[in-house]
Amino acid sequence: EFDAFVAHDFDDFGWIREHLMPKMEGEHHLKLCIGERDFVPGTQLKDVIVDKIQSSRKTLLLLTPKFVNSEWCDFELAMSRNKLFVNGRDVIVAVVLKPLQMDTISRRVYNVLKTRLYLEWNDEDVYAQKLFWAKL
């Protein structure tokens, strides 16, 4: 149903709306699952998240200091990693949206960052942003 489930903190929806949606949906015609837009109100949030992750090809994990220390980050990461065990496919694409303090993140997030390549967003460097989009 979706090309990617976007796991993120609510505070980062502005970046999603301003940068991610126009680039990935507008220019590249990918279908993103974004909770603020695609979740049906009145349903159990955890059930919806599991369903949307299962119906997405990838999980785009937008990491910020606030999000990595939330129970939602751990839950969405665990559900995404579950696809690896069930389907044999690693589906997580990690993006460090804001600089992280490595000593304050959970073991699960730490393992993701230590075992795979990840992308980093740079608010100020236009050239770095072009490389970011090309790699994503």
Rank of each mutant, 00 (worst) to 15 (best):
F2T: 02
F5I: 04
F5L: 06
V6A: 04
H8D: 03
D9T: 07
F10G: 02
F10Y: 11
F10V: 02
F10S: 12
D11N: 05
D11A: 08
D12W: 01
G14C: 06
G14Q: 14
G14F: 11
W15M: 07
R17H: 14
E18Q: 12
L20R: 03
K23V: 08
M24F: 07
M24Y: 08
G26P: 09
G26L: 05
E27L: 06
E27G: 09
H28F: 14
H28V: 11
L30E: 10
K31G: 04
K31P: 00
I34G: 04
I34P: 03
I34D: 02
I34T: 05
R37D: 03
R37S: 02
V40G: 06
T43L: 15
D47C: 01
V48Y: 00
V48I: 00
V50Y: 08
V50D: 10
K52Y: 08
Q54W: 06
S56A: 08
S56M: 05
S56T: 01
T59V: 08
L60D: 03
L61P: 02
L62I: 06
T64L: 00
T64C: 02
T64Y: 00
P65I: 06
S70F: 09
E71K: 15
W72H: 09
C73S: 09
D74L: 00
F75Y: 14
F75N: 06
E76L: 00
L77Y: 08
A78N: 13
A78C: 10
S80N: 03
S80R: 03
N82H: 14
N82S: 13
N82R: 15
F85K: 00
N87A: 07
N87W: 10
N87Q: 09
N87D: 14
G88R: 06
G88H: 05
R89Y: 13
D90M: 05
D90A: 06
V91N: 01
I92K: 04
A94G: 04
A94L: 03
L97Q: 07
K98Y: 02
K98R: 11
M102I: 11
I105T: 04
I105A: 01
R108N: 12
V109G: 01
V109P: 04
V109L: 04
Y110F: 12
V112I: 15
L113G: 06
L113N: 07
K114C: 13
T115S: 15
T115E: 15
R116F: 06
L117D: 15
L117V: 12
Y118A: 00
L119I: 01
L119S: 10
N122S: 11
D123S: 11
D125N: 14
D125C: 10
V126G: 01
A128I: 12
L131M: 13
L131N: 13
L131H: 11
L131S: 10
F132Q: 05
F132Y: 12
W133I: 10
W133H: 12
K135Y: 13
K135G: 12
